[in-house]
Design a protein around this nucleic acid. Structure first.
Lengths: 192, 192, 192, 192
DNA sequence: TATGAATGAGTTTTCATTCAT
DNA sequence: AATGAATGAAAACTCATTCAT
């Protein structure tokens, strides 16, 4: 495993545990079992290291989603798959997802912040395009698909967060069913 | 205007602009036009100051919402009002709302973090109770109201965020209508 | 009880518990149940407040000792009394005694430090004079009485400290007997 | 000279001059000619830095004393040597010795304070063991050797302090002779 | 005589970043 | 390609003291 990879693995851990600001380069180096200098040999600075992780993370979800949709499916099945995959991401690495989608507001170096926002936007566009297609098929109500995608992601994330802190109240199936219903009933035409 | 009030006003500004971690006590003091010592005379530390703001903010929304619902309204009208009030909050002070609902994940002093999470939970319960009532009336589908409330807040917030960054794409009415539809169609029975 | 007295009582407590530097005027005011301003109304500053306590404390011991010696006693009895009284002081308010005799070295405002050192010196002189008298009577070896007094006080204090932390090892009588023996055998001529 | 050594040298100076609380990390860094960050790179905090100094200081005295006693000597000679070495320490670095033996009372971070007290205790045990041996040989009266050692150290320290401030009154030989006499007559049996 | 809000200089500590090796 | 000692700016927080009331 290369130094770079060790650093990336460690960085995801540390950023997830402490959030961007409280994550220290020292701890990342320690966890990666490399010297601090090695961090800066591989990444120009903290913000860029963070951006790399975000980019990689979002790319992975998009790739997985693409693969999952790359087969003949009914609209319902497609929707369910996308929800399930996103739930996987949010539940498996909630903190990291949280960071990507939320802790970006302020306090991160402008230059990098903008790039990360752009990445996030790309991901939302990716989801919006799926909705757009369904809209063309007449299955989705006439809504702004970007804002619909944004809303869905916000909903997924906040509900996952709640679910993780209150697992006793409901099963993962319940959560999935709830979200599936809310989204289909809320966004889709009755024919769906 | 008392020092305490000046500090609170300044603190909301600064926390909103920079997020919790990048907000510095120095800047808050500067903006409030008081000495740094005055900050610490009025609030024991940064985290407690922050908690005060959050508490006050959430209380205000709850109060306003309660007032708004304290009159004979159809269910539709009630829903619309709650959405509108929450949109007001999210749009008028997005960053602050963002902080309350998101930047709490990690990196804030445990003790205070837990208190704030509890406050947030109270607010969600407050919303969930409104839904619960409607459920008893048979207007809302049989869902876990807490997770529904959580999802709605997540949705409101992420969509507001998007709207603020893309005002050219849609009007506030569009946003409100979209959310109203998504929520009513998604959560309510057809009779509603 | 006057404000001044309340402050003095509280101050002794707080200085004893935390040492001069860690004792805060805030805590003293709190314990004395007066406002902070009242401290500064009664004493010009922290150092002067401290000096007042020291002065008062040393004066009390000297007075008590004088009284105790102001009656016909054999030399042995006199010695024993002086030891006992000093032990009382050191044991009852070790921390305060510690402060008076030790924590004065550095870090206290020069001006006041010198005054306090002078007070301590007076006390040592007081003890030295008692020795001097015995020396004239031929009971004490020909030593520098000031250094003998200084040594005795140092010994009393360090042994009290040890005793307080290791009460299980010895009784107060053992301690008193040990010190009495060490001092008489060490300083006195065999006739004593 | 390594940064660490420079810091230690400077720290001893500064702590000696101002006492623990008034010694500032800024001044230590300045004197050591290193950046403030370097202090914290080498020592986790002020208290630990202080502990390091104390540990090192006490170790040195014990080592020197051991060496000095590691040769055939009469009891008298041994005693004299131990006194002389301790005097050396107290006179050469009075302030530092003062800090070790006195300024520990209160106001230092608990955790470190306890460690330092333990170190001091070790040193006293070291002295007590020397006395214990002599006691077995029948040269020392039947006393609790720990409290004897404690008393001796207290006596040495306070008398040194006095001597340093009143050099005109007596020579170092006088001081040494006085202490030697007080200790041998006070603690030893007449055969010694 | 007493108050307590306000001050600001001073202190410890953190941490991203640099650079000689 | 990797190291880790060194840096210094920035941050949170403390506390003796002042002063208008």
């Amino acid at each position: 495993m290369s130094s770079k990879d060790k650093i990336i693995t460690a960085a995801i851990e540390v950023f997830s545990e402490h959030g961007y600001h409280r994550a220290s380069m020292d701890e990342i180096a320690l966890r990666a079992c490399v010297a601090k200098g090695t961090l800066y040999y591989n990444f120009p600075n903290k913000a860029q290291l963070f951006k790399t992780l975000v980019k990689q993370g979002l790319q992975e979800i998009m790739d997985t989603t693409c693969q999952a949709l790359d087969m003949p499916l009914t609209l319902e099945e497609s929707i369910q798959r996308v929800i399930r995959l996103n739930l996987d991401m949010f539940l498996e690495s909630t903190n990291f997802a949280h960071i990507i989608f939320n802790e970006l507001s302020n306090g991160i170096e402008q230059e990098v912040l903008l790039e990360i926002k752009e990445l996030r936007r790309e991901y939302l566009h990716f989801l919006a395009d799926i909705l757009e297609e369904s809209k063309c098929g007449g299955y989705v109500r006439d809504v702004n698909c970007m804002i619909a995608a944004t809303s869905i992601v916000g909903m997924l994330q906040s509900s996952c967060n709640y679910y993780l802190n209150n697992k006793n109240e409901m099963s993962r199936e319940d959560l999935e069913y709830f979200l599936f219903t809310l989204i289909t009933k809320g966004l889709f035409t009755t024919h769906a």
